[in-house]
Amino acid sequence: MDNEEVLALFDRQMRETSPPDGPVARVERAGRVVRQVGPDPVWNGVLWSDLDEECADREIAEQVRHFGSLGREFEWKLYAHDTPGDLGERLLTAGFTAEPAEALMVAESKDQMGAVELPEGVELVPVTDPAGVALMTAVHEQAFGEDASRLARRMELQLAEAPDTLVAVVAMADGAPVCAARMELIPGTEFAGLWGGGTAEAWRGKGIYRALVSYRARIAAERGYRFLQVDASDQSAPILHRLGFARLSTTTPYVYQP
């Protein structure tokens, strides 16, 4: 895998020309910025930009004005290779708040299709309805310590309106959810996005996270998605590196509250 070529392909397919990531979202090109807009629970934010030192502050102000007119919080998803080099500092000056950076990691789907090996007593259950979503968000809240109600609303909408774009699975042990993960499939692209992967603390280090990567990789490959893409936290990045994922860049969410 040529990392530079894959990063350029990712920028083009998943950012500059990306379709909406849900049934009620829309993607707009506004000047030198590509953004996604939609009602709750849609993710609102800037996907891609082509800025220089002369236009950056003006374009930032325009996005603040636009989303402010809608009364919506939004995120500027900044990558380390975006220009100008001080775009992050400019966003902070404009009133954005930086959240923890994550590693953009990519691997070929076919290389991650190993056997799904689970601890004794653990089974994988596909999420296909609101009851499954409730199990998934319960373990998500336990693993990450954050409210998952918005994620639940988005998943329920996606399962109802565009089920082919979402694969979600829960690992169950003794009737309780212990790990959960999902995969976003955007038609017309070669990248399947791996999200979640949260494991209850007592079940970490037992190979469940790795098993869920293999489970999703097989489905991605069967559906024609060449690459797996992850925005990896400091906790998951070492695991993914051992599995053969390459680190292509760093992404930092900059959030603006209207």
Rank of each mutant, 00 (worst) to 15 (best):
D82H: 14
A25K: 11
C55T: 12
E16W: 07
R15F: 09
E59I: 09
E123K: 12
A56M: 05
P253D: 04
L124S: 08
E120I: 03
L159F: 06
M155E: 06
A115L: 13
E161K: 15
S109M: 09
R210P: 05
M155G: 00
P20G: 15
S49F: 08
G31Q: 05
L78H: 00
D2W: 12
G224P: 08
I239F: 11
A217N: 05
K110V: 14
E4S: 14
Q63V: 07
E16H: 09
T189K: 06
F191C: 05
L9S: 13
R182D: 09
M1Y: 12
L248I: 07
P20F: 01
Q229W: 02
G121N: 11
V64P: 02
G88R: 01
K77G: 00
Q36P: 09
A107W: 12
M155F: 01
A134C: 00
I239S: 10
T189Y: 08
M14N: 10
A162C: 12
A168D: 09
P23Y: 03
T199E: 12
A202Y: 01
L51W: 15
G45D: 00
E108T: 09
Q158H: 13
E73Q: 08
R58V: 11
S149P: 02
L228A: 02
M105G: 10
Q63L: 06
A134W: 00
F191A: 06
A25C: 10
E59K: 06
I208L: 07
A152M: 12
P84F: 04
M105D: 14
L228R: 03
E108D: 11
D2M: 13
G188I: 05
E141W: 01
S109Q: 07
A221S: 10
E99I: 00
L157M: 08
V133N: 09
G205H: 05
Q142E: 13
D234P: 01
G38C: 06
I186M: 11
S249F: 02
P187M: 03
Y225A: 00
R90I: 01
L157D: 10
L91R: 01
V106L: 11
F67T: 08
L104M: 11
A200N: 03
L135A: 10
R182N: 10
S249Q: 03
W203L: 04
M136R: 15
M172F: 02
W195K: 15
R15H: 03
D82E: 08
A25S: 08
E16M: 14
Y209C: 06
A8W: 03
P130K: 05
H140F: 11
G145I: 00
L248C: 05
A8R: 09
L157A: 03
M14L: 10
E120P: 01
T252C: 05
L51F: 15
A202S: 12
